[in-house]
Design a protein around this nucleic acid. Structure first.
Lengths: 128, 128
DNA sequence: AATGTGTTACACTATACATATAACAAAAGA
DNA sequence: TCTTTTGTTATATGTATAGTGTAACACATT
């Protein structure tokens, strides 16, 4: 699992970390029950602070993508991650909506945006 | 042009305003050359501060969606907004990517995501 | 001449982000 | 049992963003 953090990005590094772990799960590289590094070990590995890793972990726990077992460790949701609820779909739609609107303003057709989506899915699923 | 600001949202209100103006442009409700309210009038109308409206305007100017004519007023890009450059497409893709990954983790198929996209396009384009 | 415009400059509060250090209590391993 | 490791909690510091408030400036517009 290779993590790349861009310190100059406007995306907070705890979020970058969480998002890349999500990609790891999407790619199947991180499977249910797999354990993640301890907050201290991961922080040292990535050259960031313990609390920052901890924040990424809690962000993912909030989404129920991982389980944090106090004083033991962190694992990928062992029972598997259930299919998106209506609420989760709505949340995703709410976040994508302004980006779609921007695409429309930039005169991208629906077909072009569908193609972009397809390329992203392909790119995420590719082992790299 | 009806603007609805959710003060409890984690999305900054200047961004909410900018995004809804973008939707207005995408919908064709705001056409090239149309003038926007002054920062003071808009702020008073929306119950927010002048600087907050100003921030939204500069956000849209940065994207070249509007033109700010100093000491005169603000208008929608009069020459029309050009089609997305490769860089703009890449920026959009970078922003959508983590959302697609999350969708995949939530076991949404590519088809379901394409359908979601289609519904968003339809919804944005609808006059309401 | 008066009004309206975006701009700029302060000041202030609140929150988010990130780091640093330290201590705690319980699980895990030797 | 003893030691290490674990996530948790607490305190502190510094930086940046968000949002509001007030005021003045210079230039267009009317």
């Amino acid at each position: 699992m290779f993590i790349e953090i861009q310190s100059n990005s406007s995306v907070p590094i705890y979020l970058q970390l969480a998002q890349q772990l999500v990609e790891g799960i999407a790619r199947g590289e991180l499977k249910p029950g797999d354990s993640l590094p301890s907050v201290r070990a991961f922080a040292a590995d990535l050259g960031m602070n313990m609390h920052t890793v901890n924040k990424a972990y809690h962000y993912l726990e909030e989404k129920e993508f991982i389980q944090i077992v106090a004083k033991s460790g962190v694992i990928i949701q062992p029972n598997g991650i259930p299919k998106a609820s209506d609420e989760e779909k709505q949340q995703l739609a709410d976040q994508i909506r302004p980006l779609i609107a921007e695409g429309l303003v930039l005169k991208l057709s629906e077909e072009e945006m569908v193609q972009m989506l397809g390329e992203l899915v392909k790119d995420i699923k590719e082992e790299k």
